[in-house]
Design a protein around this nucleic acid. Structure first.
Length: 886
RNA sequence: GCGAGGGUAGCCAAGCGGUCAACGGCGGCGGACUCAAGAUCCGCUCUCGUAGGAGUUCGUGGGUUCGAUUCCCUCCCCUCGCACCA
């Protein structure tokens, strides 16, 4: 046989056309509760890469599997079509983002088609069309109605290269680089539009616990990102400036607060800077919030500790961040490492007020204070030097103090910030707002004037919308006077926060989605995509879903029931990337080996969530596997065999059942690699069968038919071809998933028996140096041993042998019974039930051909009654005696 | 530093209380087929062993258990995420 491979091109083309002609992947609007399988829609960058291929092969295989199981399936595809690269590409190529984007979409759609992905293209969406983005605008308006939109000055991350604002999530690493172009990010203050995701922080956090179909890593990343912390807010009086609120998680340490610190951009700091040169100098020249060193400057002010009444110095310090807590903190150098470092530097007092709880603590005695001069003690413990609170544990002291101090209240802090959606770019959804030249301020464009369409692209350095003078000029919807359009567009994560709802009713003209159908069809049952979206996209989508549930009649509060974060496709352990030049082009693979090979190779290479290495060798062997399978089916149909329904056939029959049972449950778990391994093993069994003897046609065909259907989700084109060759009408896409009644426990035991027996024979032949076995007897243990085993497992008697001997049919065995009883006693705790004697006999009988074939000697499987005593002593349940004649 | 996930035979990689010396793949070795090579098929691949045996293994050191690769603790190392977070 050669490895030249089959001619995949006509096969794949033929079935792609057939599916198109039959509209095979259309999901009708009137189906009830389809299984919704979704891959994260791609940014149309030009060509599919291996990551896409893997992502969409996973969803496609799962969608096809569920469909064959009888589900209605919704499996749509669309385009995350807005975004900066299109703008850059348009400039480079002297075209415009729209044309460039649609070119890319066309190319990628064709590539997806060539991969054989079964999408309902009638539901295709592209976010850059007014038909789509008008609903971004409409939703913006609804969010606005609900008070979830805010315009405010904000310090923003500004990428000078992209000339745009970046979300915190789009700024990468310590060096703060732009996620797209890796330019160092700068800070700017701009008026920005925000969506108030923080209003949903608690629910977004708490509901994570119930997302059981999500990977823990993603759940944890979201928890960290939201970063809720409980503590206490309380006021420190600063003369001349009134009460200043500080947030602390350790109010129990308040007796140790020896100074107070303000962020450089805290309002009081800014006030001080106006009058105090030192402070101004510090803020303008020395403060370095990114540095490791805590820097600060002492002010003339003092703050009053609300508990002790003590006056403590006030600093302006750069390690205090205005967006953490309240931007003001009480510093407790004895119990906080950073405060400790700063106090040491500034020579402030360091007072211990918490002692480690002594091991034998009675709960009352006030322990000795620890030495904190060199190092802060940061754990909870027992309060010391704290007046009437001394002797309390940290936990209860926090409660008491929060209650006792007048200005104190429990408070929660979040790391999550409101979502700044403004982008100073062209290729995005225009924020539907006009700025009135009179007194109406910023006015949201009324629904009936939506969409606010993008004007023609203008090639300019800044924001092309700023340059679109005619477009900018408009009228105020409120007073009718002159007004200017908002020139910011929306972050593209707005588009992707609800696109999964649009697929439900992609052409709906009066709402973003059909609420009734969405309530039937949502949530997405299986969502698949890259781990890079663990926080942003997945958190924003959850946020949108909750807002829509609260205000637009959506009956689901979470968009994605099960989430799979697929692993990377690597080359020699490294992520494939254009910049490294280590990419394998899917196009080339499809041309050379075909889509089925590419898909099958990827799905069998590893579990979907794991990274794996691309291997040309692996691709070739996958291709060879498909070729051989094709030949097998063809030679079967060309010349139907005429073998008997004998023991060998029954072995094959039970292997078919086993494979079906295992592969099915592996498909359920999306562990395609295991399902496919089983399937390939069955192909091996079928081939051995046909090599060994003239197969029983019905059995052999059942096996081939099972293999074809088990492969159909992953290698759909060839599966169609072979399904047809086997004489079936209709598509394999619509074929019923094969079924078999076996339990995996039984299969495991049977396979283990057969495998162990074969290995034992090999061992004996090898160790005994038998050159050429003449005959092999495999002797099943006598029935009484199975009974004894069962008794031994059930019994809890101390004297097992005594118990066994109470059974006359065992006692009758005399020494043999005593001896086996001793064996059982020795392994008492580890015993487990094997197959019964008849099942073992049948299993061995049907597998005997494998041994015959291997050793080229006749094998007889015999029952215990047929042999004599001396042979039987080696036979046990699960382990037949073996006699080899040489 | 905090959090999550990992460390298994030459390599990749399953298993997650007992048929585990540990699935599977790659690489290597031997055999069949072939004039030969390739492909394919059948074995072997921790050590010792002339009838299925024995011994030492699953990052380190402890512990729980009749029994641990599997459970608990200590430490070391890797990967990812977050981090001057009050």
């Amino acid at each position: 046989m050669s490895d030249a491979g089959y001619d995949h091109e006509p096969v794949e083309r033929r079935w792609q056309e057939a599916w198109d002609d039959a509209d095979a992947y259309r999901t009708s609007d009137d189906v009830d509760e389809p299984t919704y399988v979704l891959g994260m829609y791609p940014y149309p960058s030009g060509k599919l890469h291996m990551g896409h291929v893997r992502n969409y092969t996973i969803t496609d295989a799962y969608a096809r599997y569920r469909r064959m199981c009888g589900d209605e399936v919704l499996h749509p595809m669309g385009w995350d079509a807005f975004g900066l690269p299109a703008e850059n590409a348009a400039k480079d190529r002297d075209t415009n983002p729209r044309d460039w984007t649609f070119d890319c979409i066309e190319t990628m759609r064709e590539q997806m088609h060539a991969m054989g992905f079964g999408y309902d293209w009638d539901r295709e969406i592209a976010t850059c069309t007014p038909e789509y983005y008008q609903w971004n605008q409409w939703l913006f308006s609804r969010f606005h109605d609900e008070g979830l939109v805010e315009r405010r000055d904000a310090d923003v991350n500004w990428c000078p290269e992209c000339e745009t604002v970046l979300a915190d999530e789009q700024v990468e690493g310590e060096a703060e680089l732009c996620w797209r172009c890796e330019t160092p990010v700068e800070q700017r203050e701009l008026e920005q539009w925000f969506l108030k995701i923080t209003e949903y922080a608690d629910e977004l956090l708490e509901a994570i616990d119930d997302l059981e179909g999500w990977p823990n890593s993603v759940r944890q990343m979201q928890r960290n990102w939201i970063g809720r912390q409980y503590g206490t807010e309380l006021d420190f009086e600063i003369d001349g400036h009134g009460a200043v609120t500080a947030f602390t998680t350790r109010v129990d340490t308040i007796f140790g607060a020896t100074f107070f610190a303000l962020a450089p951009d805290h309002p009081i700091s800014e006030e001080l800077a106006a009058a105090d040169d030192d402070v101004r100098h510090f803020i303008e020249h020395e403060a370095d919030p990114d540095g490791d060193e805590p820097n600060g400057v002492e002010t003339d002010l003092t703050a009053t500790n609300p508990v002790t009444g003590e006056e403590i110095p006030v600093y302006v310090a750069d390690f205090v961040l205005s967006d953490v807590g309240t931007g003001a903190l009480m510093a407790v150098p004895g119990h906080d490492e950073r405060d400790h470092a700063f106090a040491t530097k500034m020579d402030e007092d360091i007072v211990p007020v918490i002692a480690p709880e002594p091991d034998d603590w009675d709960g009352e005695t006030v322990p000795d204070a620890p030495d904190v001069s060199e190092q802060a003690f940061t754990d909870d413990g027992v309060l010391v030097n704290s007046d009437e609170y001394s002797g309390l544990e940290s936990e209860s002291a926090r409660e008491r103090l929060t209650e006792d101090v007048e200005s104190a209240a429990h408070a929660a802090q979040y790391q999550l910030r409101d979502w700044g959606i403004s982008r100073q770019r062209y290729w995005g959804t225009p924020i539907p707002v006009v700025h009135c030249h009179d007194d109406c301020g910023s006015v949201v464009v009324p629904d009936e004037e939506l969409p606010v369409e993008l004007p023609e692209f203008i090639n300019t350095t800044g924001n092309p919308l700023d340059a679109a003078e005619e477009w900018k000029e408009t009228r105020c919807p409120e007073c009718g006077g002159t007004a200017t359009r908002e020139t910011d567009t929306m972050d593209t994560f707005v588009d992707s926060s609800w696109y999964f709802l649009r697929y439900v009713s992609p052409d709906l003209e009066d709402a973003p989605f059909d609420a009734e159908r969405a309530n039937d069809w949502m949530p997405v049952d299986q969502y698949v995509g890259g781990i890079e979206h663990a926080v942003m996209h997945l958190l924003y989508s959850r946020f949108f879903t909750k807002v829509l549930a609260d205000n637009e009649g959506l009956e689901h509060r979470e968009p994605f029931t099960n989430l799979l974060a697929q692993g990377m496709v690597q080359l020699e352990g490294e992520k494939m990337s254009k910049s490294k030049g280590n990419v394998v082009s899917p196009q080339r693979i499809v041309e050379e080996y075909g889509a089925d090979t590419a898909r099958l190779f990827m799905m069998q290479a590893a579990q979907p969530e794991r990274d794996f290495d691309w291997s040309e060798e692996g691709v070739r062997s996958t291709n060879a596997f498909l070729s051989r399978l094709k030949e097998m089916v063809e030679s079967y149909t060309a010349n139907e065999p005429d073998g008997a329904d004998d023991a060998v056939a029954s072995y094959v029959e039970s292997e078919i059942d086993a494979t079906i049972a295992i592969a099915g449950s592996e498909y359920d778990d999306l562990t395609f690699n295991r399902a496919l391994r089983e399937t390939q093993d069955l192909v091996g069994t079928l081939r051995s069968y046909a090599d060994y003897t003239e197969p029983h046609a019905e059995t052999y065909e059942r096996g081939l038919s099972a293999v074809v259907r088990l492969l159909a989700p992953v290698a759909p084109h060839l599966a169609e071809e072979l399904y047809e060759a086997l004489g079936n009408d209709g598509f394999v896409v619509d074929a019923p998933w094969p079924t078999a009644e076996v339990d995996r426990d039984y299969v495991t035991k049977r396979r283990r028996l057969v495998e162990n027996t074969r290995e034992d024979v090999r061992d004996i032949v090898e160790v005994a140096g038998i050159e050429d076995p003449k005959a092999i007897d495999v002797v099943v243990a006598p029935e009484w041993k199975y009974d004894a085993l069962e008794l031994a497992i059930e019994s809890d008697a101390d004297n097992l042998i005594g118990e066994l001997m109470q059974n006359s049919h065992i006692r009758e065995q005399g020494d043999a019974a005593a001896s086996y009883g001793q064996d059982l006693q020795a392994e008492r705790e580890a015993l487990s039930m094997t197959l019964g004697p008849d099942e073992e006999f049948a299993a061995l009988e049907s597998a005997a051909w494998l041994i015959e074939r291997e050793f080229d000697a006749p094998v007889s499987v015999v029952r215990a009654e047929a042999v004599d005593e001396s042979v039987l002593k080696n036979a046990e349940p699960g382990r037949p005696a073996i006699e080899i004649e040489d």
